[in-house]
Structure formats: structure tokens, C-alpha cells
């Protein structure tokens, strides 16, 4: 799913406009695998594997493999449909510069959902 994220976000002009004040390096952890998502003025400039002892990131979302798998289902099961829901379920956690993250949290949620919505016919 992550491989589609960059293309899907950047193709959504309304979402890019919504995120135009967001420039940040976000670490996404899916199970044991870490990626650095470089967001520049609402566009994803690059998604690259993040080695250990890597450059610092602004904020991170860490989730189990199962959590992300369910999150990206076309219709996720209850309480697996949202980052905050999964945090409450104990299957995701966030860290880093949360002030920056919270300021853009709605945009970030919408970005992360893109692969799910692409799997649905109604695009909703």
C-alpha cells in the first residue's frame, strides 16, 4: 500500500492544497519496517526505507503490520479505520513533534487513507 501513497496523494489536488503548509519528515513504521515520508508543501517528495541510525524525523506513526493491513482495507473493521482509534486499541502510537503533527493531523489522516479509498469503487 505504501508504494501507492506518493502517487495517490500527489494526484489529489484538493488534498495537496489542504496540506500546502505542511512540510515535514514523517516516519511510518509498519511492523519492523520503517519508512521516511518526506512531505514538502503538501506533496510527498519521497518515500524511502529508513535505516537504523538514520536522520531524525519530525514525527512518527508506528503500527503493527496487522494494524496497517486492516487500516488500508476498503472497509476496515470497527476501530481499525482511524489512527486515533488504533492508538486507543494499542496497535499504533505516535511520537516526535506532536505539536507539528496535531496542527496537520486532519490532513495527515486524509493522506494516509488514500490507499484505502483507491480500493473502493465509490472513492469515498
Amino acid at each position: 500500500m505504501l508504494e501507492k501513497l506518493q502517487e495517490l496523494v500527489n494526484a489529489d489536488t484538493a488534498l495537496v492544497r489542504r496540506g500546502r503548509w505542511l512540510t515535514a519528515d514523517m516516519m511510518l513504521e509498519i511492523g519492523d519496517v520503517r519508512h521516511l515520508v518526506k512531505i514538502r508543501e503538501g506533496r510527498i517528495a519521497e518515500i524511502a526505507p529508513l535505516p537504523l541510525l538514520a536522520m531524525p524525523f519530525d514525527f512518527a506513526i508506528r503500527g503493527t503490520e496487522e494494524a496497517w493491513h486492516e487500516f488500508w482495507q476498503p472497509v476496515p473493521k470497527p476501530r481499525h479505520h482511524d489512527v486515533m482509534a488504533l492508538i486507543r486499541e494499542g496497535k499504533m502510537r505516535i511520537e516526535g513533534d506532536l505539536e507539528k503533527m496535531m496542527a496537520h493531523f486532519l490532513t495527515l489522516k486524509m493522506m494516509l487513507e488514500k490507499p484505502r479509498l483507491a480500493g473502493r469503487r465509490d472513492g469515498a
Partner: peptide, 23 residues
């Protein structure tokens, strides 16, 4: 003051709406 309250409130409630609710 450094976080837009409306944006934050919507971010919180975004996930309280079911994924199949009409847009």
C-alpha cells in the same frame, strides 16, 4: 493558539464517523 481548533476538532471527529458514511 498555534493549532487551529477547528482543524483539530475535525481531526478528532473524523474517525468517529464510520468509513461508509456518505461523504
Amino acid at each position: 493558539p498555534n493549532i487551529h481548533g477547528g482543524e483539530m476538532s475535525a481531526a478528532y471527529c473524523y474517525g468517529l464517523v464510520g468509513p461508509e458514511a456518505p461523504l
